[in-house]
Nucleic acid binder design. Sequence first.
DNA 1: GTCTATAGCCCGATAGAC
DNA 2: GTCTATCGGGCTATAGAC
Lengths: 193, 193
Amino acid sequence: MSGRKIDPEKRIRQVVQAARKLFVERGYYSVSIPQIVKASGVSTGAIYNYFTNKESLALYIHEQALEEFKSLYSQALLGKQTTHDKLKTFAELVFDITENDSEMMEYMLSMQHGEFLQSSPPLCSTEPFRMVQQIIIRGMELGEVRQGNYFLSAVSYTGVILRAAELRLQGVLASPLSESSEELITNAWAAIS
Amino acid sequence: MSGRKIDPEKRIRQVVQAARKLFVERGYYSVSIPQIVKASGVSTGAIYNYFTNKESLALYIHEQALEEFKSLYSQALLGKQTTHDKLKTFAELVFDITENDSEMMEYMLSMQHGEFLQSSPPLCSTEPFRMVQQIIIRGMELGEVRQGNYFLSAVSYTGVILRAAELRLQGVLASPLSESSEELITNAWAAIS
DNA sequence: GTCTATAGCCCGATAGAC
DNA sequence: GTCTATCGGGCTATAGAC
């Protein structure tokens, strides 16, 4: 339909990809617009045409990453019945993203501890965490999860999984998470069952 | 001994305290030297006399925090015999610092995921983690900890504890960790025993 | 040793041609 | 819509008086 000279959506994706990579690597404040211009191949003027300023670009990236995770998790949950399997699905998704889209996982983890974007809605990052909470509440009702404070159980399960992902991204864990997946999931489940 | 006009050590402490607080609150890159000057009451010239540049100041804070944690943990470990008690001591120290010196704990957690200080020795933050690893290795030998990959067991135990501290600092966990301490320690221990 | 003042640089954001 | 050139501002680090 539109003239095929240049595709705005494609260029927005270029900017977002380049910016997210740079933000993850060096941190929000140490990344300059000129660097994003160079890395994305999109000019300053165009960037400021798409986004009102640097912060709004970061906010866009933030929301997009969150939405993508939610969508992937919802998809992966289809057909899973037991509490154990639903939580295992969470763990495996986290491990899969960590190995195959590490940039995205690093971004998810950076978002969690609020280093940048102080003006963004506080703790967006907890939305996946909320999903896990709901699963655990239901699991307690069903007697599949040990009785207790559901919040603390969610903290415990996700703590095991997310810390493994974190250490893997930092290079402390040398081998792929797929090799450790089974044992980590066993540990996380043992913490709450 | 020295003339008591001004005490350099005291002023260094002022700078370090003010800078650490600002770094934690706003992030390394968004804190300027003039802001540290204002917050600490120490002039630019004096700061650059004590530290060669902004990065070396951050490095000093980094090392000092690590040393303090190690020292506190070693102290608290005295007299603890079982693996369970040694790990519980770790957890309680983390919870105690989180509640009573939250700035310090926030700093410890920021250090962990390498947001700033890219030129610092990679993952200094893992030294407390190494101590936990050693305890777990010994615990497996003694049969107090379930057999398995000691590294993954350390990840699992500390994951539960540190994620709880993180969420508490973010305000997601509303009540003091002392109230949840027992249940969290139970969960963390269940993950590996 | 410590201060103030400022040099020199690079940033985010914009103006104006196309 | 998109570009390049540039402005005003704030930064790190230093120079030079005391």
